[in-house]
Nucleic acid binder design. Structure first.
Lengths: 233, 233
DNA sequence: CAGCCATAAAAAGTCAGACTTATATGTCAC
DNA sequence: GTGACATATAAGTCTGACTTTTTATGGCTG
């Protein structure tokens, strides 16, 4: 996973990326390409490629005669899936999870409304299938199977919205949902009310009821916010 | 602008990036690093750095013995500011503008609600100042000055939300707003109703009225959708 | 002492060439 | 047809030398 371990520069990124996003190298820190290359025991060419990638993520800035400077957090490309993974794997995972859940609560209801208008028959079928899968695995500590269908469900909604920006948030939602099952809440069976909401949402999309789809999704995301004790979204 | 023309690899990206996002090299196309290096008259090292950046944006995939393959559009990192700029500069600018406006319509109302809760006194003051600037420049074809305050206004809202994911959409909103003034609609003075909505929104945030702030922002973004003839968002 | 300019040093940037490695594809035997 | 094997190809890596830009320094002049 991650950088698919592809190539030496990928390995360097797997170490250096998290080190930066976790604050090990705080903003303003200055790194030297040559030193890094020595430290990671790779050639300067490889190190330079890694730095270029970090630069394209706005994590660092490379300037002549100065070095590679870590940029302030506010400038990072926080929508880069790689950056999101690094941060979710690091210390501010809880904070990141909250930010992303709030984002979900803004995007998903609108996406669901659009999905109700644009979903194909096939997508409606997938949706129903996922919802049934959730129901079937909602009891008896079958959390992994439940998660699988939950993720698939939200992915279909986002894709069916027909908006590419929404569709690309599928991975983010998947991370948030699986993160929830893995480390945070959700040690017990999922809330039956949440399961019901998904079933009704699938029905609403099938019935092309955009308003109802949007409202049901608001209830779903409100639940997600509550789980993280985010009272005032 | 763009890649800040920094270095040869930046120049290569300025040409190759738009070429890919515009579909000049359709998904599935295979490029060879050596050929590209020759074509751009740069060394392979520089070309490789450029390819690495494109790879980190998920625009291409580099595989041994095959070459550099253009990935399907659905896999691109469409939230990367660089990618957004390239696409806004290219042929599917209208399509991109619609996607981003729909995204705005989902995010900004929630952001405004949060801003009403979290905005500092300073941010409230900035907001009022921006709104006044909009009013002052809403007549007499002072479109540039109006745009400046409009962008600043929405930036403050997004920053004041306290959510880093929202805050990072400031640049996107800026692009959408300025794009609107530049190429699309808005040859005449802005709609007075929209101006009024901004003033009332600034008041709502100052008054810590989250519900009203959210609703006013919905009206603002609904207007933006209408301008692009997006009837059913 | 202040201000300015020439100089030097530091680090990134660039290039060229040789070598390594993975892998798609074709070939041959069975 | 299936499998093992050979081969060619393009990316990947390393090294070392050179260039360019930017900053700091230090001495000169007023």
């Amino acid at each position: 996973m991650s950088t698919r371990g592809r190539g030496l520069h990928g390995h360097v990124l797997d170490t250096l990326g998290p080190a930066i996003t976790s604050g090990e190298y705080p903003p303003g820190s200055v790194l030297r390409t040559d030193e890094l290359a020595q430290h990671f025991e790779v050639s300067r060419s490889v190190m330079r490629e890694a730095v270029r990638v970090l630069e394209s993520m706005h994590l660092v800035e490379s300037r002549r005669r100065v070095g590679v400077t870590v940029r302030p957090k506010a400038e990072w490309n926080v929508y880069d899936p790689q950056v999101i993974r690094w941060r979710l794997a690091g210390a501010d995972r809880p904070h990141q999870l909250r930010s992303l859940t709030v984002l979900r609560s803004a995007v998903e209801p609108v996406a669901a409304g659009l999905a109700a208008r644009h979903a194909t028959a096939e997508q409606c079928a997938e949706l129903t299938e996922c919802a049934l899968g959730m129901v079937a695995n909602s009891r008896g500590h079958r959390l992994q199977q439940y998660l699988f269908h939950d993720v698939a469900f939200h992915r279909v909604i986002l894709n069916a919205s027909g908006n590419e920006m929404f569709a690309r948030l599928g991975d983010v939602v998947a991370e948030v949902l699986s993160g929830r099952t893995r480390h945070e809440v959700m040690f017990e069976d999922p809330d039956p009310a949440a399961v019901t909401l998904h079933v009704r949402l699938a029905e609403a999309v099938r019935a092309r009821d955009a308003v109802r789809a949007e409202e049901l999704t608001r209830e779903i995301t409100a639940g997600a916010l509550q789980e993280l004790d985010i009272l005032a979204p």
